[in-house]
Design a protein around this nucleic acid. Structure first.
Lengths: 234, 234
DNA sequence: CCAAAAGTGTTAGCTCTACACCCATGC
DNA sequence: GCATGGGTGTAGAGCTAACACTTTTGG
C-alpha cells in the first residue's frame, strides 16, 4: 500500500457530436445532481472501481444514447484542483461521434438532454466549456487527416451530404466537383444502386463505407480540405 | 460531497526521449520502491493534492533531469484496474523531449537512471512497455506533421544532424539534398555564421530556431517525410 | 423545355522527387 | 589534388485547383 498518498475522485465526461444533415450538434444534459443542478453540462459520471476510463465512457454514452460500439476517443485529462467545487475530481474527457438518427430519443428526454448547435451552446458547468473547445479543435484536426466524419453519417449517405458535413466542420465552401472526385479516389466508398432524390431532381447516388479499406486506411492521411493548415492557427 | 464514490490513486509517468547525435534514447530508472523494486521503469510519481497532472509531470521531470520548461505533452491515461498490483492506480502518461546534453547527469546517477536505445529497452514494470509503445507512435505521428524534433537538439545544430534525427525516428534514409531544401524552405531556421567541422571536411553551417516563426507555425503541417502514411500502418 | 443539382473533363500551375553537379576543406 | 560530405540546379512526373461542360429529371 501507499498509505501516505492522496486518493481522488475520477470522472469521465463525453463530448458527443452529431450531424443532422445540415449542422453539427452537441448533446448536452441538464445536470441532475448538486452542485449546479439543472445547469447544462456534458454527460459524465464517476469511474467505478472495476472499470477502465474507457469502460466508464462507454457506459455513460450508452446510458444517454442507447448506443454501443460508438466512435469514442480519449481526449484529455482535466485536473485543476478546484474544477469541481465540492471535492477534487479529475475528469478524463472523451469525444464521441454518433449517427444522430440512431440515438434513442426516449432515453435522452429522460435525462433532459438536448442537441445544441456548436454556435448556440449554453453556459456549461465547471470546465466543460474548455473541454468542448478542445474537442472541437481535435475534431477538426483529426478529420482533416483521417476519415472519422463517416461516423457521423448513417450507413447510406450521398457525397453531397458528406460535403455539407465537411463544410460545416471547416466553415468554408468546398468545390463540389473536386470534392466528390477526391473522396471517390480514396476507394473508401462503395456505390449503391439507389439514389437519394429528395434534395435534388437528378438525385445523388447513395454510398456506403468499404469497411475493410476504411479500417486499413484509417491512419493514412487524407486531403479533402485544401490547405488544412489555415484551420489550426487558432 | 459524493460519499458513495470510490477514490483512486493517481500517478503520472514520463516517457523521456533524448537524442545523442546518432540514435534516439529513452531515460529509464531503476525503481526505488516496492513492488518491483530495482526493476526498470519509467520515471513517475503520484499526483499531489494541490497539483494538476501537468504540474506533477513537470515536477517529476525536474527531479530526474534538473530541467524546466521542457517539451511535455499529455499522452494518454492508463487505467486498467489491476495495472498496479498493490492498489488501483491510474496513470497519466506524458512524453517529453529533451536536449540530452543539458540534463543533469549527477541527478540521474542518484536515481539510478540510464539512457537506453529504443531497440534495446529492458523489460519494464506494469504497463510501461505499452506506454512506451504508444509514445513512440505518437512521436512519429506528431513529428511527421509538426516541428517537434527540434526540442531534441541543442540550440545550435546543423541540417545533417537534423537529418540523422529524422532518419532515426523513421528508420529510413532521406535524400540529403531534398531534405535540406525542404527544411530551409520552411523559414523555421536562422543560419549562423559558424560551421561545425568535426564530422566533415567542408563543415556544415549551424542553424538555430527562428523562435517566433516556430511558435507561429507550430500547428502547420510539415512534409519532411515523403509519404508519411506508410509509417502509421502499424 | 427549363431549372437545378450531380458529376465528368480539361488544363495551367505547382510541388515533389530523383539525380547531376558544384563547392569547400583537411589531409 | 583528391576524397569527403555539404549544398544547389534542374527536369520530368504527378497532383491540385479552378472552372467549363454534360447529365439527369421534376415540374
Amino acid at each position: 500500500m501507499y498509505p501516505e498518498q492522496e486518493r481522488f475522485l475520477l470522472a469521465t465526461d463525453c463530448i458527443i457530436f452529431g450531424f443532422d444533415g445540415s449542422t453539427i450538434k452537441l448533446l448536452l444534459i441538464q445536470r441532475g445532481m448538486e452542485p449546479m443542478k439543472n445547469h447544462w453540462s456534458l454527460m459524465g459520471g464517476f469511474v467505478k472501481r472495476t472499470e477502465t476510463t474507457d469502460d466508464a465512457a462507454n457506459r455513460i454514452l450508452q446510458q444517454l444514447t442507447g448506443l454501443q460500439n460508438v466512435y469514442l476517443e480519449q481526449l484529455h485529462v482535466f485536473g485543476k484542483p478546484d474544477r469541481d467545487p465540492v471535492e477534487r475530481t479529475l475528469s478524463v474527457a472523451y469525444f464521441a461521434l454518433i449517427d444522430i438518427n440512431k440515438y434513442a430519443k426516449q432515453i435522452t428526454t429522460d435525462h433532459n438532454a438536448e442537441w445544441f448547435g456548436l454556435n448556440e451552446l449554453p453556459e456549461l458547468i465547471f470546465d466543460h466549456t474548455e473541454m468542448v473547445k478542445m474537442a472541437k479543435k481535435q475534431l477538426r484536426y483529426k478529420a482533416a487527416l483521417h476519415p472519422i466524419l463517416f461516423q457521423l453519417l448513417p450507413e447510406k449517405f450521398t457525397i453531397p451530404q458528406l460535403q455539407v458535413l465537411y463544410q460545416g466542420i471547416y466553415q468554408s465552401k468546398l468545390d463540389d466537383r473536386n470534392f466528390s472526385r477526391k473522396v471517390l479516389s480514396t476507394n473508401l466508398l462503395i456505390k449503391l444502386p439507389e439514389k437519394e432524390k429528395l434534395s435534388s431532381k437528378k438525385g445523388a447516388f447513395y454510398y456506403k463505407l468499404n469497411q475493410s479499406n476504411y479500417l486499413e486506411n484509417f491512419e493514412a492521411f487524407l486531403n479533402f480540405i485544401p490547405n488544412p493548415d489555415r484551420f489550426f492557427k487558432d
